[in-house]
Lab assay of single mutants.
Amino acid sequence: KELVLVLYDYQEKSPRELTVKKGDILTLLNSTNKDWWKIEVNGRQGFVPAAYLKKL
């Protein structure tokens, strides 16, 4: 499993997105899109802007 660090808080703006908090370490599911990465948070899957995340 690949992990990502959340660099900035992000509030979901659609049902396909997820809310994340700065400092969270989460599972990366897909990073093929350069702008939006798919991650998992508490069993939910969704997208967060790639600029808000850093691969560990």
Rank of each mutant, 00 (worst) to 15 (best):
K1D: 12
K1S: 11
K1Y: 15
E2G: 10
E2T: 14
E2H: 13
E2A: 11
E2F: 10
L3R: 09
L3F: 14
L3M: 12
L3W: 14
V4K: 00
V4T: 02
V4A: 08
V4F: 03
V4C: 09
L5G: 02
L5R: 08
V6E: 00
V6I: 04
V6C: 06
V6K: 00
L7W: 03
L7Y: 03
D9V: 01
D9Q: 03
Y10G: 01
Y10S: 01
Y10I: 01
Y10A: 01
Q11A: 10
Q11G: 08
Q11E: 14
Q11S: 14
E12R: 12
E12P: 13
E12F: 09
K13H: 10
K13N: 11
S14G: 14
S14E: 09
S14W: 07
S14P: 10
P15N: 15
R16F: 15
R16D: 14
E17N: 07
L18Q: 05
L18A: 12
T19A: 06
V20P: 00
V20T: 02
K21H: 15
K21T: 12
K21Q: 11
K22M: 10
G23Q: 02
G23W: 05
D24R: 04
D24Q: 15
I25R: 05
I25G: 00
L26D: 02
L26E: 08
T27C: 08
T27L: 14
L28K: 01
L28E: 01
L28I: 06
L29T: 06
N30Q: 10
N30T: 08
N30V: 09
S31I: 06
T32C: 11
T32D: 15
T32A: 14
T32R: 11
T32E: 13
N33H: 12
N33M: 09
N33K: 07
N33P: 04
K34G: 11
D35Y: 12
D35Q: 10
D35V: 09
D35F: 14
D35K: 11
W37P: 01
W37Y: 06
K38R: 12
K38F: 15
I39Y: 00
I39P: 00
I39N: 01
E40N: 04
V41L: 13
V41F: 15
N42M: 08
N42D: 15
N42A: 11
N42C: 10
G43P: 02
G43K: 06
R44I: 11
Q45G: 09
Q45I: 14
Q45S: 15
Q45F: 09
Q45T: 14
G46H: 04
G46W: 04
G46P: 01
F47V: 08
F47K: 03
F47I: 08
F47P: 00
V48N: 00
V48W: 01
P49R: 04
A51G: 13
Y52V: 13
Y52G: 10
L53P: 00
L53I: 04
K54Y: 10
K54E: 13
K55R: 13
L56S: 03
L56D: 03
L56I: 13
